[in-house]
């Protein structure tokens, strides 16, 4: 096999161009990386509401606590199990700072049967100002006699 082409790597050829095109096409179909799971599916924050969804199916409802202190929302869970081989204890603590425009008086939580904990809070409504028209009094001019 001749080594002529290897000593001159800059030489172009139809085969080389075709291989490069196929390699570029393959790279387009190969995902660069699987994105790490974001929190956008967990927390919903839009103009109407702020919502948090957690999967707590391993915890009983009596093992969970939700505490609201100002704008700080705390969700805690503790669980203890005793088995034939020993015991198992697990806990979690989730502290979420609610946005400023959340109506903290209307926070509601819901626990579904399959262990999905949902906490929702509506956003405050903007104060609806209305313009007051200025009523101009008619000017009466009396001619004094």
């Amino acid at each position: 096999m001749s080594l002529y082409h290897y000593f001159r790597p800059a030489q172009r050829s139809v085969f080389g161009d075709l291989m490069r095109d196929m390699a570029q096409m393959e790279r387009q179909f190969t995902p660069v990386c699987r994105g790490s799971p974001s929190e956008s599916s967990e927390i919903v924050n839009n103009d109407q509401k702020f919502a948090i969804n957690l999967n707590v199916s391993q915890f009983k409802p009596e093992d969970l606590k939700i505490n609201l202190d100002g704008h700080t929302l705390s969700i805690q869970g503790e669980q203890e199990l005793k088995t034939e081989h020993g015991y198992s204890k697990k806990s979690f603590s989730r502290v979420i700072l609610l946005p400023e425009d959340v109506d903290v008086g209307a926070v509601a939580s819901n626990l579904s049967e399959d262990g999905k904990l949902s906490i929702e809070a509506p956003k405050k409504e903007a104060i609806q100002g209305r313009s007051i028209p200025i009523q101009q009094a008619p000017v009466e001019q009396k001619t004094s006699e």
Partner: peptide, 16 residues
């Protein structure tokens, strides 16, 4: 730690 707050989980298991 995230933009919305803080998350901590822990477990402890004893097996004889």
């Amino acid at each position: 730690k995230s933009e919305h707050g803080y998350l901590k989980r822990s477990f402890s298991k004893m097996i004889l």
